[in-house]
């Protein structure tokens, strides 16, 4: 019994560092100086704006790059929409608003939809690199309509799992939500059953390259890791798998990684 108690104690203690590794970085532990973050965020805006992107998929790295599982390039994905931004003083500015699904701070197995801005988005980044997926013009058009009409909220699933299965609506994470928003724009529906059927038919998620034991342990001790929505190997939506999906369906204009020095490289 003592052994079991000790093991459970250690397992519980292990949860905390895991969450910190998971990109839950608070604003207190921003890794880069504020001026670097704001400059980088502005450079990402200019990069997209120079290409006339009115809607694009944006990714950030929320944990140390050398700890990212194989094949994972970005840990958080959202949709950026070129917007008129009203300020508290009544004036307006033009720039990108970022539409996110975030875990709730006080209930990590639940999520909420939050609109923020590029500096907020990159504040807790562990590397100043941005993923930029610019969809085709017609898909941008449909994404803008979806947000302008307030329909993107309809595909939100508040139950959160970091390794959510994109083929059902039991749980959702930020990347799956982005995929659902994209498919909602493509198919002009917010019917979750239809969106999942279409994802299953056409989208190829990424197989999570970790041992089943690790995943099982994680699902036991961590509230934001669920295994019961997967019937076989664990596969989930990733930033890169969304880029491939758009590319395979001729809906991709550009997929790039933007670095802090202003250089960019192709994502695929």
């Amino acid at each position: 019994m003592k052994k079991l108690t000790a093991l459970l104690l250690i397992l519980s203690t292990a949860v905390l560092p895991t969450r910190l590794w998971a990109g839950s970085a608070s604003a207190e532990d921003n890794q880069f100086p504020a001026e670097q973050i704001t400059a980088f965020a502005k450079s990402v805006e200019h990069y997209a704006a120079q290409r006339g992107a009115r809607a694009f998929i944006i990714g950030r790295i929320g944990r140390p790059e050398d700890s990212l599982p194989e094949g994972i390039r970005f840990t958080h994905t959202a949709v950026a929409i070129y917007s008129s931004i009203a300020l508290e003083d009544g004036t307006t500015r033009k720039g990108y608003a970022v539409h996110n699904l975030y875990q709730k701070a006080d209930a990590v197995d639940e999520s909420e939809l939050v609109t923020d801005y590029p500096t907020d988005f990159f504040w807790s980044a562990k590397a100043l690199k941005a993923g930029v997926i610019i969809p085709s013009a017609d898909l941008q058009q449909r994404l803008i309509s979806l947000y302008a009409e307030g329909k993107a909220q309809a595909v939100h699933v508040p139950s959160y799992s970091a390794i959510a299965n994109p083929f059902n609506s039991q749980y959702q994470n930020c990347t799956e939500y982005t995929l659902d928003v994209i498919n909602s724009a493509i198919y002009q529906t917010q019917d979750k059953a239809k969106l999942k059927a279409n994802a299953k038919a056409h989208f190829k998620p990424m197989l999570v390259q970790e041992s089943p034991i690790k995943i099982l342990l994680g699902s036991v001790v961590m509230k934001d890791i669920a295994r019961d929505d997967h019937s076989g190997p664990v596969a989930t939506a990733t930033f890169s798998s969304i880029a491939r999906y758009l590319n395979e369906n001729s809906l991709l204009k550009e997929a790039s990684i933007l670095m802090a020095d202003g250089q960019s490289q192709a994502l695929m």
Binding site: T18, S24, G62, S67, P69, A78, A105, I163, N173, G218
Partner: peptide, 12 residues
């Protein structure tokens, strides 16, 4: 657990 693939974690 520290190496778990919490690949899509996105806390606010």
């Amino acid at each position: 657990l520290c190496a778990l693939p919490v690949c899509a974690a996105s806390q606010n």
